[in-house]
Design a protein around this nucleic acid. Structure first.
Lengths: 151, 151
DNA sequence: TGCATATAGTACCATATCGCACTATATAGT
DNA sequence: ACTATATAGTGCGATATGGTACTATATGCA
């Protein structure tokens, strides 16, 4: 692979890394003290795919260690945003259910982000996003699929 | 801001977050045990902007806490990849200098990434990157500029 | 010059994340 | 049914990162 081509992928991942940091900071600035992007992401995921997921399913979805997910969930439970109930299908397992407060937490965070996103209209139009997002999705799906294969 | 527009920004940052995690894992798989993406990034930055930077300059460049950078640098020093020398212009301060081993560490990591990037050709062509990268750069520069302003 | 304030680096503590090991339960093969 | 193996969740220890407070030095201003 020629240097100039290598460099393009390198730059792409570099921008992605910086943007991740900036966007995480933007989100966390809108969250109550003690709550992080990881907490929001889990709640948001439970809304999207329906709650009742098990901790292991969530850990896989976010590609974090099981123990990390246990820790994140215990924080969410302490805030009353989720409830852990027994899994009727598997006595080893539990299911995670959203509470009304958990749903409200998500709504408030999203409402808080709206002015931030509004500001971004000056930097990147919705049409720009339309031109960008499909490529990122394509790359993400490929890397996601490839992640467990041998190198 | 209408919901479908809000949703575009939301999806964009979601993809960015997932891609950051996947690409970090890809990089770290190519690094020697005990070395993380943060270590590589600092060495890489020192190559790009010339070494001799101070820890505070590096912390600002990566937007991490000063203490985090101290910790990362101490790891790099332990591996013999950098040297910390007194700053002749400021007795409070130090300068970070690359060693030959530090430069070799970067070269090896980059060489290791080449097959990974090669595989990505199937997912995202260099032309796709050309269509994507400028938008990401635009967004990153805007957010970077906005990050210290009041909301 | 002298003093107030700002900055660089670090020690210390809190928390997030991860890997390992363990228990309880589930699943597969006989 | 029995046994071997796999899986779910958690306790524990290690490390990465961030915040606070401190010391030494720099800078700005009277």
């Amino acid at each position: 692979m020629p240097e100039h081509e290598f460099s393009k992928y390198f730059q792409l991942f570099n921008e992605i890394g910086i943007l991740e940091q900036l966007s995480r900071a933007m989100l966390e600035a809108r969250l109550p003290t003690g709550l992080l992007a990881s907490h929001f992401s889990v709640i948001n995921h439970l809304i999207r795919v329906q709650d009742g997921r098990t901790p292991v399913e969530l850990a896989r979805a976010f590609q974090v260690a099981k123990t990390t997910m246990t820790h994140t969930l215990s924080g969410l439970e302490k805030h009353g945003f989720i409830e852990m109930r027994a899994n009727p299908d598997d006595k080893r397992s539990k299911c995670v259910w959203l509470t009304d407060q958990g749903r409200a937490f998500r709504q408030n965070a999203i409402r808080g982000l709206e002015p931030d996103f509004h500001n971004l209209l000056d930097a990147l139009s919705p049409e720009d996003i339309d031109a960008t997002l499909p490529n990122l999705t394509k790359l993400r799906m490929f890397m996601d699929k490839a992640r467990d294969k041998p190198s």
